[in-house]
Amino acid sequence: MYYFSQILIAIFLFSAQTTWLELFSFGGVTPDLILVWVVYCGVRYSRSSAIGGGIALGLVQDSLSGGLLGVNTLSKSLIAYFFSTLKNKFYVEGMVPIGIFLIVSSVFDGLVFYFSMGTILKGEVASSFLYQSLPVYSIYNALIGPFMFVVLDKIDGWLQPKMSNPYMGMRR
């Protein structure tokens, strides 16, 4: 039941990301719901679950994009690893810490793309990417993220009493 619900959330997020989310684009930039979910996994779940989730979500995101396979797998799994490892050293509740985590994650995610595009794919990246698109992307994620955290917390809270063996060690 738990894993089934996670798959449903993933399908919904990927569908939203690839269809109607563009209606809310700002300057051609939309938030990355998958990134927010990976940070959520890193902060809320055990390390192995978070890294597993990061790898799986990154791999699916790579498959659903026209980019290089492995770029999102790398960034998302490292983000999940980073937050699942360091969450006990930081205060992770509240809008401000979550917002800061999301800004850091977004910058890292964007830089991984930037360097992979420039080195492996030998493609062109507009010069405005670093000082325009990436900051907007980071701030957008940081604004959307806390609300998504609240929704995901509600879903988790709703699922928990419905399962005989809730989370099976998923929580930190």
Binding site: I55, L64, L69, G70, V71, I120
Partner: peptide, 27 residues
Amino acid sequence: ILLFSLALMTLNVKQEKGTDFLDSVAG
């Protein structure tokens, strides 16, 4: 994590068809 990701990237760059299966399933 690094090894796995780099292996995926290498597979993708060296063999253009490497991602077809994953792409098709996800699609």
